[in-house]
Design a protein around this nucleic acid. Structure first.
Length: 295
DNA sequence: GGTAGACCTGGACGC
DNA sequence: GCGTCCAGGTCTACC
């Protein structure tokens, strides 16, 4: 069964997949040769299926490997549409980027969309896993959460979906530490899972909340384990680009680009991109850094 | 409001 | 093989 989904042009699958490191985190997988993105998902019906997403005329084709009920097909269309940002609009950003040599190819290269997870819960957990650790650590922790606590794929029990909030809440702090190696992040992830599982926190509602970005940012910062960097990263995934997710890498490349390599702080990174206004985060994300041209 | 130290793990490094 | 050090954001206590 193949579900065809249309994308707002310009759309190219590979740039979305390569937009950041999310594709390297379970349960995502990318087949470079086939140009196919895979994602193991637990549907609301409880069924776990592997979605195989490929470029198709005008958008993407999603193969589920088995026949899905109508409501399951609707969920797949909704979730894949969100994951790839199929309906996102970047015309205003492209217009601004046209006059900037470091972003001149943004439209031509279909830049703008950033790969995300079906749920904001999963993206928030993964963002917490990126903090204060090397990328290898993030991959290890995400992989462990999926393999230890996620529901298995019927056709291949070795593969699992990302665990639901209920599943992580049921795991408890001790198992999150010992089985997933989350360390001090375990209580943060547990508290988040419990808040979402009990309905105390409606994370998914934030996807469509029309509130101002600053208000949305405050809601995200109220989550334990989510600081300035993590909130900005999540805002980017929510399509709000008013803040730059400043991590140590950002401090390095921005310093090299505009501050002569001297130590800088987060406010100087924000200042460097201030002229991009509501597109600040996106300009930062797709900037062609001198640091890499000279290394 | 600003700052220092603790948190946790894996990897790099020196012995 | 073992011990030490370091990288990586956020939180909390303190000033």
């Amino acid at each position: 069964m193949i579900i065809k989904l249309e994308a707002r042009p310009p759309f190219c699958l590979r740039p979305v997949v390569k937009s950041h490191g999310w594709v390297a985190l379970a349960p995502y997988a990318w087949d470079e040769e086939a140009g196919r993105l895979s994602y193991t998902i637990r549907l609301d019906s409880g069924r776990v299926v592997e979605l195989r997403i490929s470029r198709a005329v005008g958008g993407v084709g999603v193969e589920a490997g088995e026949v899905l009920a109508d409501d399951e097909q609707q969920q797949v269309a909704r979730d894949v549409g969100w994951m790839l940002g199929l309906d996102q609009e970047f015309a205003a950003f492209y217009e601004l980027a046209r006059g900037e040599a470091k972003l001149a190819l943004a439209k031509e290269q279909c830049q703008g969309r950033i790969l995300r997870s079906p749920t904001l819960f999963e993206d928030t957990v993964k963002t917490i896993l990126t903090t204060n650790t090397a990328w290898s650590g993030t991959m290890r922790m995400a992989g462990a959460l999926v393999s230890k606590f996620g529901s298995p794929l019927a056709a291949d029990a070795a593969r699992h979906a990302f665990p639901t909030a209920d599943q992580l809440a049921a795991a408890g702090e001790q198992l999150l530490r010992s089985e997933a190696g989350l360390g001090y992040r375990a209580p943060y992830v547990l508290a988040l899972a419990e808040a979402v599982a009990t309905g105390e926190l409606d994370l998914e509602g934030l996807k469509t909340a029309g509130m101002p970005t600053e208000q949305l940012r405050k809601r995200l910062l109220a989550i334990k384990g989510v600081g300035a960097y993590a909130a900005a990263n999540l805002l980017m995934l929510l399509g709000r680009y008013d803040f730059v997710p400043v991590d140590s890498w950002a401090l390095k490349v921005v310093s090299h680009e505009w501050y002569g390599g001297r130590p800088i702080d987060a406010s100087e990174v924000e200042e460097a991109f201030a002229r991009w206004g509501e597109w600040k985060g996106l300009a930062y994300w797709f900037w062609s850094w001198s640091y890499f041209e000279e290394v």
